[in-house]
């Protein structure tokens, strides 16, 4: 099964990368861009047989390594 893990900085954690991208977008003429936050998407192919198992496995992997819960939130979707 395919699992997609979305990792993003927690609310309130400064995202200097997002800020810089926001400035660059404004410089390119995109008006009205507010806060920009940048995250990470991890696509995983797992051996689990059911969507439920696959989601659980994705969550376990996010907790163990893919996300640092001190600064990041994550959510897991079963893609296929």
């Amino acid at each position: 099964m395919k699992v997609r893990v979305f990792v993003s900085l927690k609310e309130g954690v400064l995202d200097p990368q997002g800020k810089a991208v926001g400035h660059a977008l404004a410089a390119l003429g995109f008006k009205g861009v507010g806060e920009v936050r940048i995250g990470r998407v991890v696509d995983l192919d797992v051996a689990a047989k059911t969507a439920d198992e696959a989601r659980k496995e994705g969550e376990a992997m996010a907790k163990a390594l893919l996300a640092n819960e001190v600064i990041e939130d994550f959510h897991v979707e079963v893609v296929a």
């Binding site: 400064l14 200097p16 990368q17 001190v70 600064i71």
Partner: peptide
């Protein structure tokens, strides 16, 4: 050490990028 949780907190990108 922070990633291994032997110390609290985390180290983010420098504020000035």
């Amino acid at each position: 050490l922070t990633e291994a949780q032997l110390l609290p907190g985390a180290l983010l990108r420098n504020a000035g990028m």
